[in-house]
Design a binder for these strands. Sequence first.
DNA 1: ACCTTACCTACTGTTTCGTAACTTACGTAG
DNA 2: CTACGTAAGTTACGAAACAGTAGGTAAGGT
Lengths: 209, 209
Amino acid sequence: MDVNVARRKRLSAAERRNQLIEVGRGVFAERGYEGTSVEVLAERAGVSKPILYEHFGGKEGLYAVIVDREIEHVVAIIAAAISDGSPRERVEAAALGFLQYVEQHPEGFAILAHDAPTARPGSTMSSLLNDVAERVGQVFAAAFKEAGYNRKVAPIYAHALVGMVTFVGQWWTDVRKPPVEQVASHIAALAWMGLRHLPTRPDPIARKR
Amino acid sequence: MDVNVARRKRLSAAERRNQLIEVGRGVFAERGYEGTSVEVLAERAGVSKPILYEHFGGKEGLYAVIVDREIEHVVAIIAAAISDGSPRERVEAAALGFLQYVEQHPEGFAILAHDAPTARPGSTMSSLLNDVAERVGQVFAAAFKEAGYNRKVAPIYAHALVGMVTFVGQWWTDVRKPPVEQVASHIAALAWMGLRHLPTRPDPIARKR
DNA sequence: ACCTTACCTACTGTTTCGTAACTTACGTAG
DNA sequence: CTACGTAAGTTACGAAACAGTAGGTAAGGT
């Protein structure tokens, strides 16, 4: 027993910190916030509990750092996707970008999709994806204003689109097919043209750029 | 202290059972599954723990009953909404029906939107709304087949639409305005016609790059 | 009077966060 | 090369919250 005893290494503070963040992302992703104990976190990092307390002050501190990084990451992806091109291209790029993120960082996405631990009163807002939607909403509000639409309804559309793509993303992480490019294409078509023009054939996405 | 002592009443088994279900719905809604203890549940019902164990076998049993009821409820609403009318009317009715459910049963909706406790491995499926989407997907698959579309992509659309409306529903429970009818109208417009034809103004997005 | 049904108090064992007090590896000055 | 200070790490524990249960009590219909 104690297989790690040979491999146990002494790391520098920064290294240990990063390692804990990575380990934490994995554990939080698969067990949720409340479901993970600092004991398990420490064990998986091959370290004892007080180390974690020293670096992050506790479970919540580690979680906060992980969540913050992940939100910044995904917001950056979306921001880049909608930064230029025709409106329709932006929609397509955002959907594709997000789904590729889901594919490449399933753990991070799982964390964002799970309930947030912050049981602040009044707000039933469970998922962290609301923060993402909030930020998308600001972009939308600006675009709506510029286009002469009612700015007040922008959040509706922002949340609708974020909900659409994230929910599909969650489903996709389970079934893992068809490929994200195809899924993104369908979603973008739905978002842009509506149910009214369903694509009659599965893959009309021969147009690559 | 112990304000309930005077009001403590002796109920029949069926009455107590129903009371526990209602209390449980409220508590689970605001604290999530893992966040609620049997002790709190019992206390809020003005009863002691063993009563709950007697009726439901434990926390999980009570939760299962509540969830089952709520899912049946919401699926019935959606099924009724899409039972007849033109496709477009069905979309509109489904969105409106669901949002009215959210408005009238915020606690039940909160439970469905929160993470499910079933930490079965392999599946990252956190929310119970996936079950709803699953069932919507079956309806879609049939409709797709009949319309000559590829049946395999039906789940994409089903999840997209369910995600859209549920995510907006979650946001709406926090802000509580504009009225659901208006929100439903926007969502239905988006789902049916796409971003391309945003309501309230003819499309000035001719500015392509 | 009695017995069924609803209900309670009080406990066990476990799991958890968080901390106090002690130990070991490692670079470097002399 | 060796003594030593500091950063990295450990063991062991306290306190609280929790699920679930054993065994006893009282209400109320018949």
